[in-house]
Design a protein around this nucleic acid. Structure first.
Lengths: 399, 399
DNA sequence: ACCTTTTGTCCGGCCGTCAAGCAAAAGTAT
DNA sequence: ATACTTTTGCTTGACGGCCGGACAAAAGGT
């Protein structure tokens, strides 16, 4: 620190840890914070002041008085900044503006062609992001960061895709560099399914330590939360369930070149194909879901059968990983009853009681927004980490 | 702290973090520690003094002089205390005395009957532990702690077994309480396979972040290291691969009551049974390994076939988890060539290149001692955690 | 004998925290 | 209206950890 002389009264450091306690969104009084942290009253007061000055905390009404002056409630201020979150698929992209809680404020869906390569795609995402920012009246100074999910393996530490099978031209491309120039802020990148897991965990199951998020759409993938943190694996390739051998995979050819993969028998297109062989033309995966929701028995049965295939693989995952929650999302999971029925049938029948005793198998509650919420969550967790908050406060005090 | 007045010069706190740097066993000079930590020379000096006084560091010779006084090398002192480590199986137990590096100093194998219930078994373990301690000339004051591995699921935070299938009478028994009274020290308990994973990781692959240890013996189980830390799962039931459905499990009955489990076709007893059907009587798993080591082709083929079955399950695990290392241990893994060949054949053939690109599938290097080494590692990691070390130093300074 | 480098020792100062006290604010109880 | 309670803001002295510098001793090279 340049020895400017400390305009801040004292105690700006350590404020980040205090803020962490407030990130659950629950308003608390100063007295409650003193009890929770064990810090002295003066210390808590100073830190609260710093966070209030930085805009990260706000006073939100008063609590009930117990005879004297009513205590002031302090709450995390999710409007201290905004986040650009993007979820890219093979043909569609969703770009959203969120607050610091990860709540979507505004969004725009794009049709893209991921195989056109990184520059044109990222440029369109960046233009959309800038327009979302300006429409909402936010300048760059409000932008806390940019998070983006890509449909392939990503080395999270560098933000570069690693040998992505469906993203020609993206291998090892410097995604953060491009977006930082075009939009601004710190840019974080990860695999889309990882982000769905992160978003579902942060918003719906914040206290669950072990969970698996399964995406069933054009592909099949999983995001893993181990010990409350995202498990990315050694090469960022964890959760790639799509090309595991399915129990009844036989020699059904898969896009990966192998045969019998789970994706070849239980993905959206695979179910559509199976249905067509039975004489029902659903068109595409969207049509399949529509049919199932309309009560078409053939479609429901086909989806349930896909659920069973996925269930066989998940049964192994449950035994290996012992999660408390399996959340199922992705386009096909919009026909949740059938898919979940198939999955539950096999998982509960095939795993040991100890592992399934407290296991919940549920549909994703973040719906189609899981990806962008996860991307926003990733950015928020980074920006609101203790160190980042201290930096922010120190700069605010200096400037 | 009682305001005695601080006999220690200053800087006793924070010494734990400095010790952590030394736990890799590499000797370092004070100058190197200053560079690594970024602390002031006076601070490092004070902390080193505290650790030397506590016996946790020792001077180990001098480094080469660069013209002036040669720098003194400081090294972690693994003889600052001893650990009792025990690995209990269904019929055998190994009790060991180790140093703070987890190296076995003395050990004793016992024949036990785990189904006799916790009291008689733990009493024998405790007697053996006390005799190992006294034979080595150590009193209770040298005992840093006790670590014990049990062949079933354990709630690690309480040290109590949870519905163990093969340990009648042990459910929810207070193992740490019993051993603390009978032997002393802090007592830590975990599943035996978890401890093998911990031991293999700490001693052979300390810098690997993601790995799986697979034990193939009477049962089949896995211990998982995620992000450098043991993944125990929601109910402490993670890694239970034994009762996953095997690809060619058919309706082979399993001890768990289900059919087609991996354990029913690829465990030691299962291979012995398969071999007997081919007219070769190996006796038990030990005999099987002996045959295979003598070059018996039938035995080798049967073990390799078991390896393939295990490989099919591990292929799913690799896709889900993306580890850098799979270490295979347990009795059957003593016929490592055949077992590994079968596992590798399937895993490398069945997983995506990205996940297998840097994946090593190797035999355990800790051999039959994996369990006790892991138990010792667990105790050492607890006792030498930053907080514990600070406590230790504070008490030493006070007394 | 002189130089270099490492180490031990000491001390003043900075910074974050604590504990305590006082005063103001904003309610409740009488 | 008055007294009491409780919360909060503000200040101050004290303490402990760490920094950075100064000095001397130790131990080896030139």
């Amino acid at each position: 620190m340049t020895s400017i002389g400390g305009v801040a009264p004292s105690g700006s450091s350590g404020a980040g840890e205090l803020l962490r306690l407030m990130l659950d969104g629950t308003p608390r009084t100063r007295a409650e914070l003193i009890k929770m942290t064990g810090l002295a009253r003066s210390t808590v007061g100073a830190r609260v002041d710093a966070l209030l000055a930085a805009g990260l905390l706000t006073t939100s009404g008063e609590a009930a008085s117990t005879g004297g002056r009513p205590p002031a409630r302090l709450a995390f201020n999710p409007d201290a900044g905004v986040v650009i979150a993007a979820d890219l698929g093979a043909t569609h992209a969703l770009v959203a503006l969120t607050d610091l809680r990860g709540r979507v404020v505004a969004e725009k869906a794009l049709r893209i062609d991921i195989s056109a390569g990184p520059e044109p795609v990222l440029d369109r995402v960046a233009r959309t992001a800038r327009s979302l920012l300006s429409s909402a009246g936010h300048g760059r100074e409000h932008l806390a960061g940019v998070g983006i999910g890509l449909p392939g393996p990503v080395e999270h530490s560098t933000g570069r895709p690693v040998l992505p099978p469906i993203m020609p031209g993206w291998d090892n491309y410097d995604v953060p560099g491009h977006l930082a120039r075009a939009v601004g802020g710190p840019v974080l990148v990860d695999n889309d399914v990882n982000l769905m897991a992160l978003g579902e965990h942060a918003t719906v199951y914040p206290h669950v330590e072990q969970m698996i998020f399964v995406k069933v759409a054009t592909g099949i993938g999983a995001g893993i939360i181990s010990g409350g943190r995202l498990h990315r694996g050694a090469q960022g390739a964890a959760g790639d369930l799509g090309h595991v051998a399915a129990l009844h995979g036989g020699d059904t050819p898969c896009t990966c070149g192998n045969v019998g993969c789970l994706e070849a028998v239980a993905s959206g297109p695979a179910v559509v194909r199976a249905l067509r062989e039975r004489g029902v033309d659903a068109g595409d995966a969207r049509g399949l879901v529509r049919l199932a929701k309309q009560g078409d028995l053939e479609a429901a049965a086909a989806i349930r059968e896909a659920g069973r295939e996925i269930g066989h693989v998940l049964a192994t995952c449950v035994s290996l990983f012992n999660p408390s929650v399996i959340a199922v999302g992705g386009l096909v999971a919009q026909a949740a009853e059938s898919l979940l029925a198939g999955i539950r049938e096999v998982v509960y029948g095939r795993s040991l009681p100890l592992a399934t005793g407290e296991l919940q198998i549920v549909a994703s509650r973040t719906g189609g927004h899981a990806g962008v919420i996860g991307a926003a969550t990733m950015v928020v967790q980074h920006v609101l980490s203790a160190e980042q908050v201290e930096h922010h406060i120190a700069e605010a005090a200096a400037g």
